[in-house]
Design a protein around this nucleic acid. Structure first.
Lengths: 226, 226
DNA sequence: GTATTATTAGAGTATATACTCTAGTGAGTC
DNA sequence: GACTCACTAGAGTATATACTCTAATAATAC
């Protein structure tokens, strides 16, 4: 693997693990056992590394949220969107953590991220529209749909942060898949009132699958954390 | 005013304006025209300053979210809660911005914040319960109520961050009251499906008051930013 | 007034951070 | 063998950051 790619990979790994703020370019170089000079041969600065990682993230999510227009939407599609988006969020979780700072230090990123957000919001709204066409949820006015989409976006993008803060003693690195996927439970909670009678039970059953086994406090140690 | 209080005040101001990460203890001292030594006479370290600011924030929100048990809840109460919480959020907006980092560097803060979150969630849930008792919304099972409360919490605490990222060119400091209060519009969007016929129109009218005058893009310059 | 305590200034320090500069190395080309 | 060129090492730099130390001053108590 090329050094350049190794730098991107290691950076992402370290950023996710410790937070961008706690990872210096020297750390990244040390982690790869290369010299700082080498790192700076491949990237002009830290922002450039972050920007390239963002481009990967963007590409991944855009891929996941590509809505097929030629056929009706199914419940499986919706499940796929939710699962995928949360997986993407997990893989690039450092990004939303320090978002504001990152956008403040890179105008390019700010602009791109804004466009990215708008595309995501449009996709979410389109998903609602197609879910309505498929008779899964009741159709809604555009106004309401876009407000709902925004709420879905807020819940999705901030679920991880919430989880991290909800843990008291443990290190923030300790997050289980169960917990992550509980975000889907929260998103489906938003949809409940709009479900059609035909699909209500099915969606509620789906939602139930993501309900946390135990209530928030006093997690049992069934999932191991590294 | 005591130097100690002035330090807290200036710190909050600078943190809100530039983000905690971009504000050093030396900046704070310089801003107050006192020496760093003086600052460190009053506070052991930067974390202590932040912790004390958090305690203020906590006190304020706890005060706002004190639910009177002896009487029924009105629509005005709900409006007050929403307005107050967003005002509080605004006054201490730096806090949620760098939350994860702050909690990672101060265990005391992590524990306290966790308790604080749980209290807030309980209050939100209690508000829903009392709104149902008052016939404003339909009563819901506890499960659903707590999932809804969590969604409300996510929308509220992350609304500001979303606004900051939604702006492309402008500095993040440029936020208008109109925009901030649009968060209330989003929260009320969550409640819509649960409104009772009696109150539906009234709440929808209330919500309408917080709708952004123009659509997201291309804000007109009616509100001035510093 | 004198002693004590609270407060302040301001220079200073150890460490870290993002990044630079120079001097290479090694694989391919002719 | 000489040349090129992508790549790498590693020491080094300017600046910043959180924080300390000493000495001086203001406030208060007796």
């Amino acid at each position: 693997m090329k050094t350049r790619d190794k730098i991107l990979l290691s950076s992402l790994e370290l950023f996710n693990e410790r937070g961008e703020r706690n990872v210096t370019t020297n750390h990244i170089a040390a982690h790869l056992a290369i010299s700082p000079g080498n790192l700076y041969y491949h990237f002009r600065n830290k922002s450039d590394i972050i920007y390239e990682i963002f481009l990967e993230y963007e590409k991944l999510v855009d891929f996941y949220l590509d809505i097929p227009e030629e056929r009706a939407m199914t419940l499986d599609d919706m499940t796929f969107y939710l699962e995928s988006v949360f997986d993407g969020l997990w893989s690039y979780r450092f990004f939303h953590r320090d978002l504001e700072y990152l956008l403040d230090s890179d105008q390019r990123l700010r602009q791109d991220y804004r466009d990215f957000t708008n595309r995501c919001l449009a996709s979410i709204s389109r998903i609602f529209e197609k879910l309505a066409e498929a008779g899964i949820i009741e159709p809604q006015e555009e106004d309401l749909r876009s407000a709902m989409s925004l709420n879905v976006w807020l819940v999705i993008t901030n679920w991880m942060a919430f989880l991290k803060t909800a843990h008291a003693a443990e290190e923030s690195a300790c997050l289980t898949l169960t917990e992550l996927k509980q975000g889907i439970y929260q998103v489906l909670t938003l949809e409940i009132p709009y479900l059609t009678p035909d699909y209500r039970e099915r969606v509620m059953a789906l939602r139930e699958k993501y309900r946390p086994a135990l209530h928030e406090k006093g997690e049992s140690g069934e999932d191991s954390c590294t």
